[in-house]
Nucleic acid binder design. Structure first.
Lengths: 137, 137
DNA sequence: CTGCGTGCAAATGGTTTGCACTACG
DNA sequence: CGTAGTGCAAACCATTTGCACGCAG
């Protein structure tokens, strides 16, 4: 299950360390697109000696190497996403919840739209939806 | 030109202070969705005595009262937008530039799509596109 | 006048940094 | 073995806070 991750690390010439594996697993298991703090809290139990600085360094390097993504928010606290496939996000206005939203039809619709409609002076690389609203409790 | 702004302040029961006006003007004039620092830098010339704390307080209160919006980014530095109408954002992957993108056809397309396709357990309130790519120099 | 708003400076807290040490390959 | 990676603690810096004063209504 972390096999994919270990392979990816090697591909990128990054060493497979227990810290990296633990941090990656934390992001995968913690739903809701965790913060660095969430990760630290989560791994504390099984890896009490991983330091805060390491967590931040690992997160940065995983983002840089495209094994994680940063999630755009309007908070100054960073959040991370382990899902790399093309998907959108649901942002709850009441809680801090952010959930993934996959919708292939929507992707097709949008990419068709922009196949015709070019944006002047801008070369589109990727399009994501931020869907804001409320989860039904 | 700041008339709209002054009216809105009154509507909300907020006092019209020179600080608030200056900060709002800064956001409007600074394109590229400025940070608090950008605002501070900008108003320093004409209002050298507005304090940093005030800028943050004013920004917060204007966001809370819907006279400004926070822009979602993957940076831990907050950025602000004075344009309240429904629009999307172009994010440049090379520079920090964020530009507004208005496209009524697109808005219609998307709102039609979600008129039929409901998201389970989620009540949509607003949908924004993050269009990532590159500006042609 | 009266309290909302401001200035100031200190405090906060998430993130970064530097360096000696560790362990992956 | 040699170097990428880690742990630790101090440093950083955007933002927040508390309080006395000032000014908009």
């Amino acid at each position: 299950m972390t096999h994919f991750f270990r392979e990816k690390l090697k591909e990128r010439g990054l060493k497979v360390t227990p810290q990296r594996v633990a941090i990656y697993e934390a992001i995968v298991n913690l739903k809701n697109h965790p913060t660095a703090e969430n990760v630290i809290e989560y791994i504390k139990t099984n890896h009490p000696n991983i330091s805060v600085g390491t967590v931040y360094k690992v997160l940065d390097s995983l983002v840089e190497n495209e094994l994680l993504k940063k999630v755009k928010t309007e908070k100054d606290i960073m959040r991370y996403d382990a899902i790399l496939s093309n998907h959108h996000h649901l942002y709850c206005i009441e809680t801090e919840r952010i959930e993934d939203y996959e919708d292939e039809n929507l992707n097709v619709l949008i990419s068709n739209y922009f196949k015709n409609k070019k944006i002047k002076n801008f070369k589109v690389q990727d399009i994501k939806l931020q869907i804001t609203g409320k989860f039904n409790k």
